[in-house]
Every structure is written in C-alpha cells, then in structure tokens.
C-alpha cells in the first residue's frame, strides 16, 4: 500500500514542481541578449523606460513572454493527457483531432483577409485560429458521434479526414497567397512566443487553470475510462458526461494555447509520457504534474529559442521538437521496463 498515491504525496509533489517552475521562470527571465540587473529591476517600479531599461525589459518583454510560455505549456500538456486517456492511445496529442489544421486554416484566412482590427486585445490571426480550432473539434466530435456510442475509432478517423481536408485547403490558400502572407503563416504554424499584454495573459491563465482544476475533478473517472468505456460504466462512471466534459475542456484550453502561440508541437505528446513514465499513470497526479512540467519545459525551450541564434530568434516549436525528441527517448529507455506498458 505504500506505493499508492495519497493526497499528501500529491500536494508535496505538486508544491515541489511549482517551486521548480518558479526557479526556472526566474532564471530564464534573467537570460537573454540583453543582461538584466535584478537590483535595477526591483528598484525600478514606477520609473520611466529611459531611466530604467532593465525594469522595462523585465516587465514588458521577458516576464509576459515567460508567463505566456507557462500558460501554453501547461495547456498543451494537460490537453495531451486528456486525449491520450480518452482515445486510449499513447500516441494521441492535443492536435490529433484536427485542431492544428482548423487553427491553421483560421490563421491563414485571417492573414489573407488582411484584417487589422483587434478583439479584446487579440489579433485577427489569434481570433480566427481560436475559432478554427474550436470549430474543428466540434465538427470532428459531431462526425464521430454518427459512428456510434463508443466512438473512439470514429473520432480518430474523423480527425484524420478533417485534418487532411483542412491541410489541403491551407496548401491551396498558401499557393495563391502573396509571399509576405505565406511567410507570416509559416512562422505562425511553427509556433512562436510573442509578447502579450498582461490582460490577455491573466484572462487566458484564468481559463486554463480553471480548465485544469475541472479536469482534476474528473481524473478518477479518467483512470477508469483508461480501461475502456464498458469497464468504466461497470464501476459507476457516467462515461458520456465524463467524456463530454473532458473533450470540451481539453479542446478549449488547446484552442487558447494555439491562439496565443500558434502550433507548438511535441509538448502535448512528450510531457504526459515523461510524467507518466516517472510518476505513474494515475490522472489525479498526471494532470497537475504534466501541467507544471509542460510549463517548465516550454519556458526553458523558449529561452533557448531566444538565445541560440541571437539576436535572431528560432520558432519555439523547432526547439521543442529538437530537444524534446531525444529527451523523450532517454526517458522511454530508462523507464519502459519499470512500467511495462510497452511490452515486457
């Protein structure tokens, strides 16, 4: 019984992970092409930019970007956990049901349309990407439902078809778009962290944290659903309600992440796996820890993206794939024997 997860263990591990996150955020906020003096930063509240550039760089460039990476990393990692559980597929990620192509289609439509308005501080690309992501999930979910009550395979197939169709439309639009528009779209598709104002960040963070708390509340039911819908129902889980809540929340937080940063790959696949391999598959622990580790991972990856080719910047999606892939392989080799779900 000593190996079992307890509330005390969960609180200690979550708190420890949060401490690591704060340390990483703090260290990464000091790293960049311009060196920043902490003394100047903490003594600089209320001063003009010309008087205290350190404070301005810290507060208006580094900190918003780091908070942004936290929100996106946490949202994508938790969303990955949910899609892997619901689809009972270790290869699932937040984009598996076509969210990426839907968001991409929204983004390129916004770019080609040349809109210049903003909605609650959000650019047309962000707004269209958000709508495209949610619209696609709704479409895939509706098609999946037509295939029957237990529609995991139906959902996956609908996701593949919608993804392929929207990708073709994106290719078509890119082939008729102007060079500048194509460049903006590709840059967005690779995933980028750009400075956002604090209003957007706090609102997004509020929704993502609320989503993760809601998902935590249904995490025991997600454990049961990992054994299949019929088994879960036999154990008293209302599978329809649980799946609907989980899909809706995971899709919403993914759409928020995508509208903030474009398509950052790999986080939603490798972070849940990494946490699962080290701490086990219990979703009560997997969800909060994946959220925090996802945030740590993306903050660190974005810091690398800022400094590797400084003063130029890499899209963060490139770093997550290059760093994340080998890191994941190491974890896989080290822990596969321990958990035994990839064979004996």
């Amino acid at each position: 019984m000593k190996d079992l997860l307890t509330a005390k263990k969960l609180i200690i591990r979550t708190a420890s992970a949060l401490v690591v996150l704060v340390v990483v955020m703090f260290v990464c906020s000091l790293i960049g092409t311009e060196s920043v003096s902490l003394k100047a930063v903490f003594g600089g509240v209320g001063q003009q930019a010309t008087v205290n550039p350190d404070y301005e760089i810290f507060m208006q460039v580094r900190l918003p970007r780091i908070i942004l990476a936290c929100i996106v990393g946490a949202a994508l990692a938790c969303s990955g956990v949910i899609f892997q559980a619901l689809l009972r597929n270790p290869l699932a990620d937040p984009y598996i049901l076509g969210i990426s192509s839907g968001a991409g289609l929204g983004a390129i439509i916004a770019v080609i349309s040349g809109f210049s308005w903003t909605l609650w501080g959000r650019s047309p690309i962000a707004v269209f990407a958000f709508a495209g992501a949610l619209g696609t999930v709704w479409l895939v979910w509706s098609i999946g439902r037509l295939t029957g009550k237990s529609h995991v395979t139906g959902l996956l197939l609908a996701g593949v078809v919608v993804n392929a169709f929207f990708s073709a439309v994106i290719m078509f639009l890119m082939s008729v778009a102007k060079a500048g528009q194509v460049h903006s779209t590709i840059f967005w598709l690779m995933g980028n962290m750009t400075e956002e104002d604090f209003f957007v960040l706090w609102v997004s963070a509020g929704f993502v944290v609320a989503g993760i708390v809601a998902l935590f509340y249904i995490s025991p039911q997600l454990n049961a659903i990992s054994f299949g819908e019929d088994d879960a129902r036999s154990m008293g889980v209302n599978t329809t309600r649980t799946r609907t809540i989980a899909f809706a929340v995971a899709a919403a937080i993914t759409a928020i992440a995508v509208s903030l940063s474009g398509l950052v790959g790999f986080v939603g696949l490798i972070v849940p796996h990494g946490v699962r391999l080290v701490f086990g598959p219990d979703h009560r622990q997997l969800l909060p820890l994946s959220g925090i580790v996802g945030a740590i991972f993306l903050v660190a990856a974005d810091t690398l993206a800022r400094i590797i080719v400084a003063p130029a910047q890499l899209p963060v999606g490139v770093v997550t794939a290059i760093v994340g892939g080998p890191f994941f392989l190491v974890l896989l080799i080290k822990y596969t024997r321990k958990v035994g779900w990839l064979g004996k």
Binding site: D3, L4, A85, S226, F227, M235, R276, P281, W341
Partner: peptide, 14 residues
C-alpha cells in the same frame, strides 16, 4: 491495458 497501472491502482478503481 494501454497504460501502466499497477495491480493495486487497478483494484482501487473499483
């Protein structure tokens, strides 16, 4: 099973 739940975690799900 898809994920690596232990025996006791599996039984506890009941």
């Amino acid at each position: 099973p898809v994920f690596g739940f232990s025996v006791i975690e599996t039984v506890l799900m009941a």
